[in-house]
Structures are given as C-alpha cells and as structure tokens.
C-alpha cells in the first residue's frame, strides 16, 4: 500500500541523507564476505585430484609384487598381481564380468532405492513424533549396529533361497542407517528455521517440504551414503551365504566359488571388484552431490 503523499515528504530532514544509497553500497562492498578463491581449473585440477590415489595404487601393487617375488608364502596363498589381473581381464573379455557386476549392482541399487522409500517417511515420523521416537528410537539405533549378515539365516528360512531373502537382508541393512541419518539431520536444524517457516505461513506439510527436508539434507545425504554402504555389504553377505543357481552369479557368489575352488586369484579379483564398485559409487554418485549441497550452503570448504 504505497502512500505517495508521504514518500516524497522530507519529514525527517536529518535522516533523509541523500547519500544513504551510496553509504549503503559502500558498506555492502566492505562487509560482504570475499568470494571464495577459485582453485585450479581444468586438467590441472583433475590431475591434482587423481595423482595421489594413483601413486598410492602403484605403490601398493609394487609392494605386492615384491612380496610375491620374495616367495615368503606359497603361490596359492599369495598370487602374483598379474595372475589376479588375468582373472579380471579374462572375465571382462568373455563378458562374464558385466553379467556378474550387473547381477549384484542392480540388486544393490533396487534394494537401496526401496530402502530410501521406506526409510524417509519412517525417519520423518521418528524425528517429529515424540512417542514413536521414545518407543522405537533405541531399537532403530540398535539395528544399525547389528550386522545384517545375522539376518541371512532367518531370511533363508522365511523366504527360501531367492531374491526376496536377499532384498530382505539388504533392507534391514540400509533402512536403519538412512533413518538415523535423516533423524540426525532434522535434529541439527537450527530451531529458528521452523519458527520462520511458521511465521511465513507454512503449515505442517509445507514446513516439511520447504523447510525441514531441505534443512536436513546434509545429514540425510550422510545417511544415504552410509545406507548405500550398508546395502552393498549386506548384499555381499547375503550373496556369499545364500548361493544358488537360481540366484544367478553375483560378486558374492563369484567370491564363494573362488573359495570353493581354492582359486586365490579369483578370490582376490572378487574382493577388488567389490571394493571397486563401492569406491566407484561413492566417487561418481555421492561425492559430487554432497559437494554441491555443502557448497551451496557455504559449508565443507575442505571437501
């Protein structure tokens, strides 16, 4: 509701300083935090990021090779790096590797996504409804420290050796982590933000959608990351124990076969592939998202 009659009236001559806009602009220029210094760009940045882990990898293989060459252990206990590489390369060449990876990774991804769908509303409920929290909060925290491999026998007896059993184990591994991450994220929200939301007219639903969930995002992301790690290791545990032709050949079964055949190169190759998937998903999926989220909030300058 503009009141033009008052706008132009110099009612308070001392304070209608004609330089107010200029003073303010000067103050803004002085007080605004300096923009973050841009790091190195392009290939130099990629090199700076990739070189240290590459060097570490080379050193690791060199030590391995040296230990093998010293023949302290028999070949069937410590194979040469080249022997392991041959197993991997062979599997890649005949297309078996793609099949193995696909079997495991698609299971882990589906299990993880279902866990997200289950854990997100569950986490909201746990964080916002006090009686629910009091009743099952400790249980959820306890479940997080229970190795999900402990569920494999029960899952097999309930569902038989099939996909349902595997997904059950994966869910019990991932859901508590994601739930706890979301609860922690919501707990760390500064209390002023929900108050502001209410003052601006946000109802319960709007407040969750526009204030609570975005504010809890860093904690939620940490929970998701941990949830993925738990899905992946639960899946490996399940595949390792519940081996059956009808489950297909996943990484866990590949590892199990290696043990059954006393094929140490295959065992090590399987372990390396499991590790590779874990690191790859972390680097390609979670790290960039996390970095973007933290940067936008002026957090995590060191990441």
């Amino acid at each position: 509701m503009p009141r033009p009659d008052v706008v132009d009236e110099p009612a308070l001559p001392g304070q209608r300083d004609p330089g107010l806009a200029t003073v303010e602009a000067g103050l803004d220029a002085l007080d605004a935090p300096a923009p973050a210094v841009q790091g190195r760009r392009g290939w130099r940045r990629v090199l700076a990021a990739a070189l240290p882990p590459l060097l570490a990898l080379v050193a690791f293989v060199a030590v391995w090779q040296a230990l093998w060459a010293s023949a302290l252990w028999p070949e069937y206990k410590l194979p040469a790096p080249v022997a392991v590489w041959d197993v991997v390369w062979e599997a890649v060449r005949d297309g078996q590797a793609v099949g193995i990876l696909w079997t495991s990774v698609h299971r882990a991804v589906i299990g993880f996504l279902v866990a997200v769908v289950v854990a997100t509303p569950f986490g909201m409920l746990l964080a916002r409804v006090r009686p629910v929290r009091a009743a099952i909060g400790p249980l959820v925290t306890g479940l997080q420290s229970l190795p999900s491999v402990a569920w494999v026998p029960a899952a097999v007896l309930w569902f038989g050796i099939n996909d349902a059993a595997i997904y059950f184990v994966v869910l019990l591994g991932a859901v508590p982590s994601i739930t706890n991450g979301l609860v922690a994220g919501i707990e760390q929200i500064p209390p002023i933000l929900p108050r502001v939301g209410a003052a601006l007219g946000a109802g319960r639903w709007d407040s969750a959608r526009h204030i609570l969930l975005p504010a809890a995002l860093p904690g939620y992301l940490a929970g998701l990351k941990q949830g993925w790690a738990f899905s992946w290791r639960s899946l490996m545990a399940a595949e390792l124990i519940a081996v059956s032709p009808q489950l297909g050949l996943g990484l866990g079964a590949f590892l199990q076969n290696g043990q059954a055949l006393s094929d140490m190169p295959q065992v090590i190759a399987a372990i390396l592939l499991i590790l590779l998937v874990g690191v790859g998903v972390e680097l390609l999926a979670f790290r960039p998202v996390e970095r973007r989220v933290l940067r936008a909030r002026g957090l995590g300058g060191l990441v």
């Binding site: 500064p190 108050r195 502001v196 003052a199 204030i211 975005p214 995002l217 002026g298």
Partner: peptide, 11 residues
C-alpha cells in the same frame, strides 16, 4: 515477523 537473526534459509 522479522527476528534478531536474519534466519534466511541457507540453501
């Protein structure tokens, strides 16, 4: 309502 803190949503 305006508070002592700006309380802007940081994201």
């Amino acid at each position: 309502v305006m508070f002592q803190e700006a309380a802007l949503l940081p994201w």
